[in-house]
Amino acid sequence: MTNSQRPYGNSRTPLPPGQTPADGPPASRTGPQKDARAEPGGKQRDAFFDNAKYLAIVLVALGHAWGQILDDGPVETAYRLVYTFHMPAFILISGYFSRSFDLRPKHIQRLITGVVVPYVVFETAYSLFERYGNDQPDHAVSLMDPTYHLWFLCALFVWRLTTPLWRVIRHPIPVSLVLAALGSVSPQIGSDLELQRVLQFLPFFVLGLTLRPEHFQMVKRRSVRVLSVPVFLAAVVTAWWTIPRMQIGWLYHSEAAEQLDAVWWVGPIMTLATLACSLVMTICFLAWVPRRHMWFTTLGAGTIYGYLLHAFLVKAGGYTGFFAQPVLHEPLGVLGLTLFAAAVVTLMCTRPVQRALRCVVEPRMDWAFRRDAGEAARVFEQPRPVEVRTPGEKASV
């Protein structure tokens, strides 16, 4: 996938509507689709993107579970492989469905209700869980230091706000790569709001902003699927080879080169190299995502719930010493943990969970915002349709 077209301006392909990340990427409105399904509001969801989001969230849960039992063997090989593309895929799709985002009040409101509110609620909840569940009475609640996986909400907030900037500059992808490289040589950035990850993962969000539906059609070609098989196998061998030779922190993109015990000039090289590998693996992943409606397709609309909730179990396992059990380092134990993690995050994406937690994940907060007078005026001024009647009847306007 390349930036081979002008990403903005007059385009014949309509952009998907801006939507809160809490519901995940909305369906692409590119016309009637064979695999699309209707939503209550009359919208169409693309099965391909919902399938991709579900599979990605399962990989996120597996990665977090495997991360507790790394053994310099098959588990760490799988862990490193998954970490090359599961979050890049999420970020790229998020960028793709942010193309219509601007600073209109309704979009800012969605950003607040879909990103800021869930972040505040769950950051507070995880901090309290750390304090009482792990017997850490001095553990403070800090919104500036995201817990574990919540960095993604901080990053998404910043990326969305900067979307208008990427829409006006001439070469957005090269600029984002420069910023990512600069981040890798700037240890003084610190950990506040995980700004290192905001910068180093930025190119995937910007790439998503530049993509159009036809680029995803290219990824779905049979030739790409076939080619992805040897690429995937090569990636497995490479992941195994890097275990004693490369720190896993390079895949987290959360620290600068000096913090990873490397000289400063290694930072840009490793950052750009790992981003390139992540892009290749993301393409391979998307190539094998089913395009038709599957049994798990409807779960794609609830991936944010699984993302926000599954870490409670991961942390609880760490607090109680569950992951220290010797059986989890045996093949059957690893298999059992893998199936358990996949099943739990799947349940967390179901509609009952969505209904129970929608008040904090996707809250309706009309009471908190002023009414957009300009938008109301535009709606009021829209002409009403004229009803045409046959001669002899009165026409109503």
Rank of each mutant, 00 (worst) to 15 (best):
N10H: 14
R12K: 14
P21F: 15
A36H: 10
A36I: 08
R37A: 10
G41I: 08
G41Q: 03
R45Q: 14
D50E: 06
N51F: 07
N51D: 05
I57W: 00
L59N: 07
V60Y: 07
I69Y: 00
R80C: 06
V82S: 04
T84L: 14
F85H: 04
I93V: 11
G95K: 07
S98R: 05
F101Y: 13
D102R: 13
G114F: 00
V120S: 03
V121N: 02
S127M: 10
R131Y: 07
D135I: 14
L143R: 05
H149Q: 15
W151R: 09
W151F: 10
F152K: 03
F152M: 02
L156P: 03
L161K: 05
R167Y: 08
V168M: 13
S176C: 02
L179G: 07
A180S: 03
S186P: 02
Q188H: 13
L195V: 12
L207G: 00
T210H: 06
R222N: 11
S228I: 00
V231M: 12
G249I: 10
Q259T: 10
A262F: 12
A262D: 11
V263S: 13
V266I: 14
I269S: 09
A276T: 14
C277F: 13
M281N: 01
R292I: 05
R292F: 06
T297G: 04
G300H: 00
G306N: 01
Y307S: 08
L313V: 15
T320Y: 11
V327W: 15
L332F: 12
G333R: 07
T338W: 11
F340W: 15
A343L: 14
V345I: 15
L347M: 13
M348A: 09
W367A: 15
A377P: 07
R378P: 05
P383T: 02
V386L: 13
E387L: 10
